[in-house]
Computed example of a mutant assay.
Amino acid sequence: MDNLLEPARRPHRLRQCLSKTAIPVVLALAGLLAPQARAAQEASWPTRQVRIIVPYGPGGIADISARSIAQKMAENTGQPFVVENKPGADTRIGTEYVARMSGDSHILLLGGGGFAVNNALFDKLPYDTASDFIPVGLVVSNPLLLVTGIQQPYANLGELIAAAKNGETITLASGGNGTLSHMSMELLSAAMGAPITHVPYKGGSAHTSDVVGGRVTGIFENPSSALPVLRAGRYKAIAITSAARNPAMPDVPTVAESGAADFEVVNWFGLFAPAGVPEAAVERMAAALTQALQARDLRERFMRDGVAVGGPTTREFGRFVASETEKWAEVVRTRNISVDR
C-alpha cells in the first residue's frame, strides 16, 4: 500500500520544494517592485483624501484661503480635500502635528508668518522648519495696513512718528506677542528711531473697538479685516507695508515713502508637505496648487481685498521662506523680543 500511495505524495513534496525556493524569490521581487509601485502612485498624486491642516482658528484669511484652494483642488483632481483647523500655541500645535506625519503625501500644512518667526521666538520647538517640511508653494500674500481711529489727529505716518519723537505716547495693538502685527510695530520703531508702545491682545478682533474708540492709537492689520471698518468710516489708513502702493488702495502711501527706507512686511500663507514625501508627489502638489490659484472667481475674491494670489513654488518658495526666517530672527535679536514660554 505504501508504494501505491507514493505517487500521490510526490506532488505534495514538489510543492514543498517549490515553496521553499519561491518564497525568497517572491519576497525579493516584491522588494524590487515596491519602490516602483510607490513612485507610480506618488506620480499620480492624489490617490485618496488630502487633509490641509490650518494652525489658525476658523474665519481668518488663513482659513479662508485654505478652504478656497481645497475646493478648487478637489474639483480639479477628483479627490476630496478637507481643511482641519488646529490652532493654539502660536501655530505650533498644528505645525507640529504635520511635522510628525513624515512621508505622508496626503497631509499638508498651511503655514504663514508664524512659520518663519517662531524659530527665533521660541528656544525649543518640537520641529525644525528647515528639515521637517518641504515647501510646496505660496498661496496668498498681502501687505498690512497701518490704521488708526478716525479721531486720531495724525493725517499720515510722518505726523504719528513726529508725535512719538516729541514725547507723545503712541500705542500700537497686535494680535499677541510675536504676531506679524507686533513684529511690524517693532520693525517700524527701529527703522524710524521712534518709541512706540506695544499693546498685545489675544488674537481675533478684540482690538478693533479699542482702536476705533481711541484707547489705542492704531494697529498693523490685514486688509481683509481692516477694509470693512475703513469702509464703515471708523478707521483711517495712514500707511501700507508693501514696497509699492497697492492697486486696491492707491491713495494709501507706503511706509517706505513715509521715511522708513526699504521697509516692507508681507503677510503670507503657503503650503508645506511633511519631510520624506517623494519629489514627484511634491511636483504634483505644486502643479495642482498653481492650477487651483488660476481660477478667476478665486483670484477676484482675494484681489478685491488687496490680497495677491499665488507666487513661487517648491525651491523658489523655500528660498523666500528662508529669507523671511532670517529677517525676523534679526528683528527678534536686535529688539530683544521675548514671549511667554
Rank of each mutant, 00 (worst) to 15 (best):
I93L: 02
I93A: 01
T95H: 02
T95I: 03
E96R: 04
Y97C: 08
Y97G: 12
V98N: 10
A99C: 15
A99W: 00
A99Q: 03
R100T: 06
R100F: 09
R100M: 06
S102K: 15
S102Q: 15
S102T: 15
G103D: 05
D104C: 06
D104R: 04
D104M: 06
D104E: 09
S105D: 13
S105H: 09
S105Y: 14
S105N: 14
H106T: 12
I107Q: 10
I107W: 11
I107K: 07
L108V: 03
L108C: 07
L108D: 07
L109Q: 04
L110Y: 12
L110G: 03
L110C: 07
L110P: 05
G111V: 03
G112C: 06
G112Q: 06
G113W: 11
G114A: 14
F115M: 08
F115C: 13
A116D: 02
A116P: 01
V117N: 12
V117S: 15
V117E: 15
N119I: 06
N119F: 11
A120V: 00
A120D: 00
L121W: 13
L121G: 05
F122V: 00
F122L: 04
D123N: 10
D123T: 01
D123L: 00
D123K: 00
D123C: 00
D123M: 01
K124P: 05
L125T: 09
P126W: 07
P126Y: 08
Y127K: 03
D128K: 10
D128L: 12
D128C: 05
T129S: 15
T129M: 08
T129E: 14
T129N: 15
S131W: 07
S131D: 13
F133S: 01
F133A: 02
F133D: 02
P135D: 06
P135G: 09
P135T: 11
V136Q: 06
V136H: 14
